[in-house]
């Protein structure tokens, strides 16, 4: 590269091992990775497009320092092997003033094949790698991410992408051959009509005119049928696009349903929380009893002792009263009330003395209050209060429950906010409007189909008429005419074979791409349940699960599978391609997580004979080399050293430094 982008003066990159294997070019953002890819594309096609497909102005490609030194010259030289032959491209531009037009005027291109300069180099390069298929060989991580969006972008972008894919697969070769043969057949027919006129004779002239008229009518019909088919194709693409949009809206409907579910869950949780709060308030109302509990406990104990003491005294007094009665009776009857022994004077005196003592004892016991229900009642009241005392575990349990409900409600609210933000700006009427539009377009498509069929029938009738006429003309014994008729019939036969080959080859290639994409996908997929890929007519992709469920894009895009699926398709296109070229990937793993990134890295060596990875240290980390198992043949690093010197290229040392 000479003065290209951040590369001041001459810089050379050499891919080792004859270019075969994996080649790493490391550099952070803004160090000059993308400029290397752009330099190659500029060398090939003389222009570079940015990520939005806009052409980058030549004045933006010149190195700053060169510009400051008034050197208005930049260029690229590429050495490569094509079909086993060494080739070299040298593209330069030099301007007298720093002006886009001047650079375009000052551009020169040389192509050497096997050491010899080749005429018409632009056309030769386009044959080697058509510009519209280069997007599958020189791409960046953004393209992987946007692949499906490209399909949905609009009908034009979709048609362009579809054409590019079919071109990679080689379908247009059959189309070109068919069209070439059609052109040749027309030439033969014109020649035949011309000769017939020359042969003279009014009958012959009349036949020739009639034949020419029929041919003109057939040409017009072909044109009309082509236009109608084109209209129908545009309409069918629009229908397919609208149906995909409608499928995406299924997601919106699911979100709306989820929103209702969340709101209901929040309501249920709020109810449960309120119930627990009421329970807690009731408990707190009884909390004063906890404060009184120690005092009540002491009082109960005291009441129990006093009650027991009173009961003991009462029992003693009752026994003393009984004893006094017995003594009184014994004294009165002079006979012992317990054993019936007759008592003498001495014994009677002893009994009287004992009676006096007993009376004194009874008097003493009477001074203590007799047992009453007051003690019992007080004790019961306090015991009941003690039963109401809260345990700290009960309160903690309720607080824990309330916290759980709070957490659940907060979580649901957060999800609700998320769902609401996704639903913002969604036009609720759009699905029904789209359905109506699809129905209207399908009706129109049906009408066009009918019209095409009618025109084809008309063409069939004309063809019958013409072949009848051809037979008449064929009967005219003219050698040259006979020869031309044979050539026309022969050309027609060949044309029909190519016509049938177009759809057969397209279907077979699509099946091969689908099969290869699935093989790649299985090596780098994130979930084992994702079984295989299916490619639709527009080259959009669906994942089929092991249970044979078809997952549309809206159902798997959230799982980060999008880049993996696009990479599988691009890998398959490269494997099935009619064009052999190296693959340059600019920051391809930027959005992949570690596991995905490792799987893709392990797969890469199988993807193409030559792969150049332009990576940042964030996506290709220290130790990642192990996944490429000795396939790395070149390892370079880039560094932007400042505006004056620009970017430099140097071999990477151990540890990725």
């Amino acid at each position: 590269m000479l003065n290209f982008g951040p590369y001041y003066r001459n810089h050379e990159i050499s891919f080792q091992n004859d270019g075969l294997g994996i080649h790493l070019i490391r550099g952070g953002n803004g160090q000059g990775k993308t400029s290397i890819q752009r330099a190659i594309l500029w060398g090939l096609y003389g222009e570079v497009k940015d990520r939005r497909g806009e052409t980058i102005r030549p004045t933006s490609l010149l190195n700053h320092t060169a510009f400051n030194e008034d050197i208005y010259q930049f260029g690229v030289q590429i050495d490569f092997i094509h079909d086993g032959v060494n080739c070299r491209i040298i593209r330069r531009t030099q301007a007298i003033r720093h002006h886009d037009k001047k650079y375009e005027e000052g551009m020169t291109l040389e192509l050497y094949v096997d050491g010899r300069i080749v005429p018409e180099p632009e056309r030769q390069i386009q044959r080697m790698l058509p510009p519209d298929v280069s997007r599958f060989y020189f791409f960046d991580g953004e393209m992987l991410r946007d692949y499906e969006e490209l399909l949905e972008d609009d009908s034009r972008a979709m048609a362009l992408l579809k054409d590019s894919i079919e071109r990679v697969l080689g379908v247009p070769y059959f189309k070109m051959a068919r069209n070439d043969l059609e052109g040749i057949k027309r030439k033969f027919e014109r020649e035949r009509a011309r000769i017939m006129r020359q042969l003279g004779g009014s009958d012959l002239e009349e036949l020739a005119e009639l034949q020419q008229m029929l041919q003109d009518e057939l040409d017009d019909l072909d044109k009309t049928i082509n236009e109608l088919e084109k209209q129908k194709e545009i309409l069918d693409n629009k229908i397919a696009e609208d149906k995909r949009k409608l499928a995406d809206m299924k997601e919106v409907r699911e979100l709306a349903t989820r929103r209702l579910e969340i709101e209901k869950d929040i309501e249920i949780n709020e109810g449960k929380k309120d119930k627990k709060i009421a329970e807690r308030n009731t408990m707190i109302e009884k909390l004063y009893k906890n404060v009184l509990a120690p005092i009540a406990s002491t009082l109960i104990e005291k009441f129990e002792i006093q009650s027991q003491q009173a009961l003991d005294m009462y029992n003693q007094k009752q026994r003393a009263l009984e004893h006094a009665d017995k003594l009184k009776k014994g004294i009165k009857e002079s006979k012992c009330s317990y054993c019936g022994t007759v008592l003498d004077e001495k014994k009677l005196k002893e009994l009287e003395a004992e009676l006096e003592e007993t009376k004194i004892r009874i008097e003493e016991l009477t001074q203590i209050p007799e047992p009453n229900l007051e003690y019992e009642h007080s004790k019961n009241t306090l015991t009941k209060m003690m039963d109401d005392v809260l345990s700290s575990e009960d309160l903690e349990e309720i607080d824990k429950k309330i916290n759980e409900y709070d957490y659940e409600i907060a979580k649901l609210n957060s999800e609700l906010e998320n769902v609401k933000s996704k639903l913002e700006g969604v036009d609720a009427d759009e699905p029904s409007r789209l359905e109506l539009q699809i129905r209207t377009n399908e009706k129109e498509s049906g009408r066009l189909s009918g019209k095409i069929e009618a025109k084809k029938e008309e063409k069939l009738k004309l063809l019958e008429e013409k072949s009848e006429l051809d037979r008449k003309i064929d009967a005219i014994p003219q050698d040259q005419l006979k020869k031309l008729n044979k050539r026309i019939i022969f050309t027609d036969s060949i044309m029909r074979i190519f016509e049938r080959a177009i759809s057969t080859f397209r279907e077979e290639q699509k099946a091969a791409v689908e099969k290869t994409a699935t093989e790649i996908f299985r090596e780098i997929r994130s979930k084992e349940e994702f079984d295989r890929l299916k490619i639709n007519d527009q080259y959009g992709l669906s994942i089929i699960t092991v249970h044979n469920t078809i997952l549309d894009r809206s159902e798997w895009r959230s799982s980060g599978e999008e880049q993996i699926v696009a990479l599988s398709l691009i890998g398959a296109l490269n494997k099935c391609a009619q064009v052999k070229a190296p693959i340059f990937m600019d920051t391809p793993f930027g959005r992949l997580d570690v596991t995905h990134g490792e799987r893709v890295l392990k797969y890469l060596p199988k993807m193409s004979d030559q792969i150049v990875l332009l990576v940042t240290d964030r996506e290709f980390r220290e130790g990642d080399e192990i996944h490429l198992a000795g396939k790395i043949k070149t390892d370079l690093s880039l560094k932007y050293t400042g505006e004056k010197e620009g970017s430099i290229i140097y071999p990477t040392t151990a540890g990725g430094e």
Partner: peptide, 22 residues
């Protein structure tokens, strides 16, 4: 014979067909 190619290729195909027929 099955020729297998933005055309004026047509001349070359025509030559082949002419050689085959006539």
């Amino acid at each position: 014979l099955l020729i297998l190619v933005d055309r004026g290729c047509q001349e070359q195909i025509m030559t082949i067909i002419n050689q085959r027929v006539g």
